Amino acid sequence: MNPFLTYPTELLILVFLIITFLQSAIDKVIDWSGNLGWLKGHFEETPLAKMVPALLMTVLITEMAAGIFCALGIYQLVGEGEKTMALYGAVLSCIALLMLLFGQRLAKDYEGAKTIAVYFIPAVFLVYLLQPL
């Protein structure tokens, strides 16, 4: 059976998450100092102020892992019909988004938090789709 016809929703959301998280992680690597400077200002009035570099690295690693697992998930889903790696990628994507949401809410950036919610919806839907029956 053709996996592109069997799993079209899963594959499309996986590609969406790959683009979202690999682009974000690559941007953090390429412009580390710019991201760090902006985030230090964004969180200067929060309890996270002194932890921004460590938290940025944590988010970077989580986003990179999410993107890689989503890519491996596409390979595994198309090649073997297996969903394990895709599920790991979807769960890591949700975790990354929850970390970002927590930060935005703590910084009282409610508009930024709303934007993250838009990304969370397809990610959590993918977790639902990939659950073993």
Rank of each mutant, 00 (worst) to 15 (best):
K50A: 11
K50V: 00
G67Y: 04
E45Q: 12
L56Y: 00
F43R: 03
G37F: 11
M64Q: 06
G41H: 05
G41T: 04
T46E: 02
A66D: 05
V59M: 04
L39V: 01
A54R: 09
I61F: 09
L48S: 12
M64D: 03
M64I: 04
A54N: 09
E45G: 02
V52Y: 12
V59S: 11
T58L: 11
L56P: 00
T58N: 04
C70F: 02
C70K: 04
L60P: 00
H42T: 10
I68C: 06
A71E: 08
T62Q: 10
A49Q: 13
A54F: 05
V52R: 12
F69A: 10
H42Y: 15
M51C: 00
A65K: 06
T58F: 07
A65T: 08
E63M: 14
A65Y: 05
T46G: 01
A71M: 14
V52H: 12
P47R: 09
V59P: 01
P47S: 06
P53Q: 09
P47L: 07
L48H: 14
V52P: 05
L48Q: 15
T62H: 08
A71C: 12
W38Y: 13
M64S: 14
L72A: 14
L55Y: 08
W38K: 13
C70E: 01
G41S: 15
T62Y: 02
F43W: 09
F43Q: 00
A54E: 00
T62P: 03
V52F: 14
T58E: 03
K40R: 14
L60Q: 02
G67T: 10
A71L: 15
K40T: 04
E63H: 09
F69T: 14
L48F: 15
W38Q: 05
G41L: 10
V59Q: 07
E63C: 11
G67M: 02
K40I: 06
M51D: 14
E45W: 06
E63T: 05
G67A: 11
G37W: 03
V59E: 12
M64G: 13
M51P: 00
V59I: 14
E44R: 07
A65C: 07
M51N: 13
P53W: 14
L60Y: 06
